[in-house]
């Protein structure tokens, strides 16, 4: 059992941040859709689109920043499909999400093969390198854990309070929250339900797209088929677990990130537990977390209901 304790706390926590960042970004995106009353299972597909377009952007421009912008655009494109289907076409949002995810998997794998064939897939393309923040990164434990990461991680640090402020402290945030609770009231008071829903869905696509780009050009500079491997769904779980609130979603994402980071570290250190059980950890934890904490949570009242002005 001694190997279990050999793992450094710093190492696990650093891995936690690295694994949590895509979940944080995607679940923040999920907050936007949830708050306007849209079920967003498409986070997975948006991330995958973002991961691919971010990668392609980096390959052809040679710049990680342009790659990240392309990633956000890719996520937004997928979000536009969800927005059209759930807001305009008033279709079943869950099914729309599933459809988008299948399509995303197909299109990204298809394009990867047609663009690069099987033998010469690019790897080590332009990606974000770690920037140690002076002074702050010298603090013991906290420094290396929090302040020695790539630019995208710092963007995430800023995005969390920004989203919280937008949703809870601005008039636009009030409209957003009201749209999810009572769209009829928003409409009566002269607000634009359709526009709010479209914009928030696009915002979720941008954030999820960035989360996806983090997976491909945030560290390794490589795209593999189905690189998201269910992270978008875990972000949905984090969102529900976090009771559809920005800070709650972030806390839940950190918890899942911790499970991921821990299992990665445990696999490196020779643990007596078969590695498959360690790999299961994040998924099992998601289920247990939902079971223990979600019981009394209440979703926004208009969740999953398309709005029809003529009703």
């Amino acid at each position: 059992m001694s190997s279990l304790f050999d793992i450094s706390i710093t190492g696990v926590l650093t891995a936690t941040i690295r694994m949590a960042v895509p979940l944080v970004l995607a679940s923040l995106g999920g907050v936007f859709t949830a708050r306007v009353g849209i079920i967003n299972l498409a986070l997975e597909g948006m991330m995958l689109f973002g991961a691919f377009s971010g990668f392609i952007g980096a390959v052809y421009s040679g710049s990680a920043i342009i790659g990240a912008v392309c990633g956000m655009a890719g996520g937004a494109l997928a979000a536009l499909i969800l927005a059209f289907l759930s807001i305009t076409a008033k279709a079943n949002q869950t099914v729309a999400g599933v459809g988008i995810n299948i399509t995303a998997l197909g299109i990204t794998s298809y394009l990867l093969s047609t663009l690069f064939g099987y033998g010469n897939r690019p790897y080590g393309v332009a990606s974000f390198s770690n920037i140690a923040i002076p002074v702050l990164s010298d603090i013991p434990v906290i420094g290396p854990v929090l302040f020695d990461h790539s630019l995208l991680v710092y963007v995430t640090y800023i995005a969390v309070p920004a989203v919280w402020y937008l949703i809870y402290r601005t008039p636009a945030g009030l409209t957003i929250r009201a749209t999810g609770e009572n769209p009829r009231a928003v409409d009566t008071l002269g607000g634009n339900v359709m526009r709010t829903r479209y914009l928030c869905t696009l915002a979720s696509g941008v954030l999820a797209g960035l989360a996806g780009a983090y997976l491909t050009i945030g560290q390794m500079g490589q795209f593999m088929e189905n690189v998201t491997a269910g992270k978008g769904y875990i972000a949905v779980a984090a969102l529900i677990f976090g009771k559809w609130k920005p800070l709650g979603a972030v806390a839940a994402s950190l918890l899942f990130g911790f499970a991921e980071g821990l299992q990665l570290r445990l696999q490196i250190g020779e643990s007596p537990i078969p590695f498959q059980f360690l790999s299961m950890l994040p998924y099992v934890m998601t289920m247990v977390a939902l079971l223990l904490f979600v019981g009394r949570a209440k979703a926004p009242a208009a969740m999953g209901k398309p709005y029809n002005r003529q009703d």
């Binding site: 499909i81 305009t88 076409a89 099914v95 299948i102 399509t103 998997l105 794998s109 093969s113």
Partner: peptide, 22 residues
Amino acid sequence: IPIAIVYVIQGLAVLFILTDTF
């Protein structure tokens, strides 16, 4: 042609069918 085209067709079919009521 990459076999992933099957998933493209499959996913799009699901998305198209959602627009039928609309």
